[in-house]
Amino acid sequence: MLVDFNFRIIFEYLPLFLTGLRSTCFIAVVSIALALATGIIACACRISGVKAIKYPAIAYIEIIRSTPLLVQIYFLYFGLPTLGLRVPELQTGILALMLNSGAYIAEIIRAGITSVDDGQLEAGTASGLNYFQRMRFIILPQALGVTIPPLLGQNIVLVKDSALLSLISVMELTRCGQTMTSERFMPAEAFFTVAFFYMCIYFCLKALADWSQRKLIFREAY
């Protein structure tokens, strides 16, 4: 079993894996930034009272959350060309990750905002603060404390989700494993190495999430 694990071949392929790792990190960073923007906008629409933007936001969030990411990726990958749009694989993949995580992030932010006690809003209202001041000084700072840990959790999910981009031939970490498997047929070496790199990213992000959990959750006032 693991006795004949071939480390030499891993070293031979190390440069390939490192490019894959870099590519995965790049995809993750770009997608999370875009997803955050999408999520904030979707959440703002979702909690607004204007029906014309509220219902489209609900539809977007619910459709994304109840269909698999892989189907969303294929939808864009096979669907955009039928609309006459030639988008390269990488961009298609990032678009899919952005739309997917954006919906989850919108819900995370909404949960953070609704978690702030109603009394806090009333206290702000009674002091004469207007809507934006209540949001800015009272709701958002407290919502941030409960939002950051699950946001970092979503970040972890996104890194793992980006592995699915290998199925539309985006050259990232998992795709490197597939490449090595098809060239040398050493799946154990290939995929355990891939798994190892994902674990490294996971532990870094998890340490960050745990740290933020301790740091950012405000103690209850009563």
Binding site: A123, S127, Y222
Partner: peptide, 19 residues
């Protein structure tokens, strides 16, 4: 805003801003 500035309100549950 002007009206509420003339009126102070104290809640049963204090509702201080914890942050």
């Amino acid at each position: 805003t002007k009206l509420r500035a003339q009126i102070g309100f104290v809640f049963q549950q204090f509702h201080l801003y914890p942050h």
